[in-house]
């Protein structure tokens, strides 16, 4: 594992009785790189993210984060990563400040009060600091999720549809904040989304998944032309409809 390599996934597999949700998936992410994990619903994107987060046990394969085997060093690896997901709601009955305090303590963040103060400013949450998370709008809740996701300055950020259900303006703002974060902190980001325009705008590389397998990977701005498509969305639809014709186009 090279120094720049933040995450190395090899032969990752997850089986549920007769269903193979993730099938021999391998990829790496380097520092400062934003990788898009794409695929239709049920392709295995969330399962992969959950296995990297350590909340789902793989049936086979290995995950190395920061050079450590995730299975043996879950807590140490989690200390240096974080996540935001559209389905992972933060406790609705705590205020924004309380949530950031609890998660700051969970991630053992030094100078927590100062860190929270800066996050509230950065994510424009000052006026909601003492408001319960349950009454925030979708945009405000997404900003809070993102503030929580970067509270420990993670070197690996996992984002499962971070802009889903947001209006275009807020989504653009969130994208900008994540891009800035990855660039400034040299953090690796794994990002899932169904918005292909967003992926084109943000990701350095994409991995197309179908039925648990990575079918192809590459630069999201060049891939469509390579496969005779006008844009990423057209490529996505073709891949979702006829995955067999794209099989084995993925390299590590």
């Amino acid at each position: 594992m090279s120094l720049k390599e933040v995450l190395k996934v090899e032969g990752l597999t997850k089986e549920y009785q007769t269903l193979k949700a993730v099938d021999d998936v391998s990829f790496t992410i380097n520092a400062g790189e934003i990788i898009g994990l794409l695929g239709p619903n049920g392709a295995g994107k969330t399962s992969i993210i959950n296995m990297i987060l350590g909340i789902l046990e793989p049936t086979g394969g290995t995950i190395q984060a920061f050079g450590l085997d995730l299975k043996k060093h879950r807590s140490e690896c989690s200390q240096r990563m974080n996540f935001a997901a559209v389905y992972a709601h933060l406790p609705p009955n705590l205020t924004v400040r309380q949530i950031l305090t609890v998660f700051g303590l969970l991630y053992s963040v030094p100078n927590l009060k100062e860190v929270i103060k800066n996050l509230l400013i950065k994510f424009d949450l000052q006026k909601f600091a003492d408001v319960r998370a349950g009454v925030l709008s979708s945009g405000e809740a997404s900003r809070l999720s993102l503030a929580k996701a970067v509270i420990n300055n993670p070197h690996l950020l996992l984002l499962d549809e971070p802009t889903a259900s947001l209006d275009p303006n807020v989504a653009k703002e969130i994208r900008g904040q994540i891009k800035d974060y990855a660039k400034n902190k040299q953090a690796a980001v794994l990002w899932t989304s169904h918005n292909m325009k967003e992926i084109e705008a943000v990701c350095d590389r994409v991995l197309f998944l179908s039925h648990g397998k990575i079918l192809l990977s590459g630069d999201p701005r060049r891939l469509p032309a390579e496969y005779g498509k006008n844009d990423l969305e057209e490529l996505f639809i073709a891949l979702a409809n006829k995955p067999v014709s794209f099989a084995n186009h993925h390299t590590l």
Binding site: G54, A88, Y107
Partner: peptide
């Protein structure tokens, strides 16, 4: 009820 497990167990919490 929250539900909060995902956030808790994806953190370094043992």
């Amino acid at each position: 009820w929250a539900p909060n497990f995902l956030n808790y167990f994806a953190s370094p919490l043992k």
